[in-house]
Design a binder for these strands. Structure first.
Lengths: 205, 205, 205, 205
DNA sequence: TATGAATGAGCTTTCATTCAT
DNA sequence: AATGAATGAAAGCTCATTCAT
C-alpha cells in the first residue's frame, strides 16, 4: 500500500501545516486582544502567506473555531485525567481545574464568549461545536454524580458550567487588577461556587 | 421662570433625540449581532444623518455604553422595586428577575460581555461603568443578607452575579433553539442556581 | 437725518460684530495650526453661532482673507509710520520690521502662503487682495528709491518682498528650534538680505 | 545566482509599482491644488485600488514626502551636474536652474511650502527631510564659495535659498497671469536676486 | 500547492454649510 | 437677525478574501 502510505504522509504534512497555523493564531490571541488579530498577523507569525490560511481553513471563523476546539479538548482531557485518579475528581477540584485553565488561557474564554454571544455560527460549525461542548458537560455531570449531588444532575451540570464561565466573563478583565489578583479572585469565587454545588441532597427545584 | 422653562424644553428635546438614537441602536443590537452594527445603520434606523450621532455621542463606544447603562439601571430598578415589597426580595425571585430581564433584552448581556471580555474601555468609561456594576452587586448582596445566607456575603454576591451572567452567556444563543426554549432553559437554570445559593449557612470556603 | 444716523448705527454694530468674529479667528489661528481651526471653533470663541458667521462672511475662505487683510494693513501701517520718521525708513529697518512682524504673527505668513500657494481665490477675493499687496510693494519700492538703490526699483522691490517672505517660509517652522532661536535666525537672515539689497548702484540685470 | 535575480526582479517590480503610484500622485498634484488630492483620486489615476496605496506607503503623508523627495533629489542633481561642468556653476546659473525647475514642477514648491509651513511632520519624516534639504543648501554654499562671495557663506546660502523659495511662493500662482508670464517674471526676479548675491565682498552683516 | 499583491467594500469620523425656528 | 441642530459628502484607512503566477 505505498499509495496509502503516501497519502498518510501527505495527510500528516497537511495536519502539521494546519497545526502550525493554529498554534500561531493561538499565540497571537493570547498576546493581544483576540478580536484584533488579523489574518495577516497570523500568516506572518506562522511564516506562511495569507492565501495559505485559506487552503486550510474556509475562513477566519473556521480558524477561530479550530483554536477553540483545541482548548476545549485540552480542558476535557485535564478533567478526564483527574477523574481517572483514585478517588475521582471532586467538585471543588473540577472548579479549580476549569478556572485555572481559563486563567492560563485567557484567549479561550474570550473565544467561548465570542461564539456563544452571537457570532453567527454556520451550521457546520455548530455541528462541530456541539459534541465538544457536550463532552465537557458530560464530564461535569459525571463528577457531580460521583459527588452524590442529587436532583437532576444534567440540569445541575449545566448550571455549574454556566456559573464557572460566568466567573471568568465577569471578572477576568476587571480593570485595574493585576493578573495575579484576577487569578486569586476568580479561584476564590470558584471555591464559593463549589461550596454551594458540592452540598449533598437538597430540595432544590 | 420662562427661561428655565425654555431651557427645560430644549433639554427635553435634546434628551428625546438622544433617546431616539439610543433606542434605534438598541433595536438594531437586538436584531443582528451587536458588534456588527455600524454608525450608518443606527443613523438610518433613527432617521438622522450619521453626523448627528456625533452631536449626541462622542464616538460609537460612548453610544454603546449609554445603551448598556440604560439596561443596567433598568435591571437595578427592577430589583430595587422587588426589594421594597413587603417581605423583600427572595434569592429565587432575584434570579428570576435578572434572567427574565436578560431574556427580554438579549442585547444587554451581549454588551455586558463585550465590555467585560476585553473591549478596551477608556478610563472615563471604566469610571462610569464601575458604580453601575457596583450598584447591582450591592443589591444582590442585600438580598443575600436578608436571606440570611451566611459566610462572606460580598463574595457570595460576586459568585451569584457571575453564575447568572454565565447562564446567559452559555445558553442564550444556543443554536437550534427557539427563544421560548431558551427562556425556559435559562429560567430553569436560574432556579437551580437559586436553589444552591438560597440555602442557609454552610461551611463553604 | 435720523435714518442715516440709524443706518450708521446699524453699520457700526455690524462692523463690530464682524470684528469680533475676525478677532476670534485671529486668536485661534495664532494658538493652533491655522488650517486646523474649524468654523465651530471660531463661532464658539466669538460667542456666536456657526450660522452667524455666514451672515458676515460668504464662506470660510472669505473670513480667512479678512483676517489676512487686517495683517497686511497692519504691516503696511508699520512701514508707513517708519517712513514718516525724519530720515525715512532704511532698507535694513524695513527688513527688520517685516520679519519682526511675521515672527509676532506666525499666522500671517501661514495664511499668506495658503493663499499664494494655490488656494483657489475667487475673482472677488483676488480683486480685494491685489491692492493690499500692491500697497506693500509700493512701500518697499519707496524705501528702495530713498536708499538710492538703482536699477528697476519695481523689480527690485518684488525681489526683496519675495526674499523676505521666503525667509519665513523656509525657516519659521524649522523643526527642533525654539521660537526664540527661530526669531534670531530669521532676523539674522533678514540682515543678510538687507545687506545685499541696500548696496547702491550695481550692474545687475 | 537565480535567487538574486529573482529577488531583483521582485524588487524592481515593486519599485515600478511604487513609481507608478508616485507618478500618478505627482500628475494630480500638478493639475489641481496639491492639498485637495485624495487617496482615492491617486488610486484611480494609477489604476489601482485605494488599498494598494497603503501597501506601498504607510499613509498619505508618506506618499506626499516621497513625491517631494524625488523632486528634491532631482533639483540637487541638476545643480550638481552644473557644478561639475568646467568652470563650475555660477550663482546666476544656479538661480536660473532652481527657479526653472520649480516652474516646471509647480507641485514641488507647493509641497515644500506645505511641509515648511506647518504640516505637522512626524519625527521620522523630519529625519528623512533634513538631509535632503541640507544637501541642497550645501550645493548652494559650494556655488557661493566658488563665486568668492565673502562673509558667512553658510548664512548667505540660507538667505539665497530663502529668497529663491520666496519668489515662487510670492509669484508662482499670481492670479490672472499665464504660466508663461509667470515663468518670465519669476526668472527675471531670480536674475535680480542673483545680481545682488553674486557681488563680491561687501561689508554686509 | 503556496504565494502575496491586489482588491474594494466598508468602517468611523469630520466639518463647512444650510435652514427651520 | 441669530440660532444651532442637522446635514451628508467625503476623508483616510483596514482587512478578509481572491486569484494570477
Amino acid at each position: 500500500m505505498p499509495v496509502a502510505t503516501f497519502n498518510d504522509l501527505k495527510d500528516s504534512q497537511r495536519e502539521a501545516r494546519r497545526a502550525l497555523i493554529r498554534a500561531s493564531a493561538q499565540t497571537l490571541f493570547a498576546r493581544q486582544d483576540f478580536a484584533s488579530v488579523t489574518a495577516r498577523d497570523i500568516a506572518k507569525a506562522a511564516g506562511v502567506s495569507p492565501g495559505t490560511i485559506y487552503r486550510y481553513y474556509e475562513n477566519m471563523d473556521d480558524l477561530f473555531l479550530d483554536v477553540f476546539f483545541v482548548g476545549a479538548k485540552e480542558i476535557a482531557c485535564l478533567v478526564e485525567a483527574e477523574c481517572k485518579k483514585p478517588g475521582g475528581c471532586r467538585v471543588r477540584r473540577l472548579c479549580e481545574i476549569y478556572i485555572g485553565f481559563l486563567n492560563d488561557n485567557i484567549t479561550y474564554y474570550q473565544m467561548m464568549s465570542h461564539f456563544m454571544i452571537g457570532g453567527r455560527l454556520s451550521d457546520t460549525a455548530t455541528e462541530r461545536l456541539n459534541p465538544v461542548m457536550r463532552r465537557i458537560i458530560d464530564l461535569i455531570q459525571e463528577v457531580l454524580k460521583n459527588a452524590e449531588v442529587g436532583g437532576n444532575t444534567r440540569m445541575t451540570s449545566h448550571a455549574l458550567f454556566s456559573a464557572l464561565n460566568g466567573i471568568m466573563i465577569s471578572y477576568a478583565k476587571y480593570p485595574g487588577r493585576s493578573l495575579e489578583e484576577i487569578r486569586a479572585h476568580t479561584v476564590r469565587l470558584a471555591g464559593v461556587v463549589a461550596g454551594f454545588f458540592e452540598q449533598g441532597e437538597n430540595g432544590r427545584e
